[in-house]
């Protein structure tokens, strides 16, 4: 099975800027952006440990482009 391209997306209109993802990502994939929301620094460093997803209280971290598309309309 072909490995999927890594993908991480933060849905800003759901995010409440708790910054758990930034703080607890073991590989510093996410940082605080200039707009005050988390942003992805370097997706290649991500090991897909899923900690950011587990720790996101807002369900605002999305890992599949199709899901992003579905949710963006909401």
């Amino acid at each position: 099975m072909a490995k999927k391209t890594k993908y991480l997306y933060i849905k800003k209109n759901w995010c409440k800027q708790c910054m758990f993802c930034v703080e607890f990502c073991p590989r510093d994939v996410i940082e605080v952006g200039e707009d005050g929301y988390p942003r992805i620094v370097d997706i290649t460093k991500c090991r897909e440990c899923t900690l950011c997803i587990s720790l996101c209280p807002e369900f605002a971290i999305i890992t599949e482009p199709e899901v992003t598309e579905q949710l963006e309309v909401r």
Partner: peptide, 21 residues
């Protein structure tokens, strides 16, 4: 509709997603 009702940094959303998983 989202986002949900809980405060920023509240753990409740984390627990809910653990339940769902």
């Amino acid at each position: 509709k989202f986002p949900h009702v809980w405060c920023p940094g509240c753990g409740d959303g984390i627990v809910l997603s653990a339940i769902v998983r």
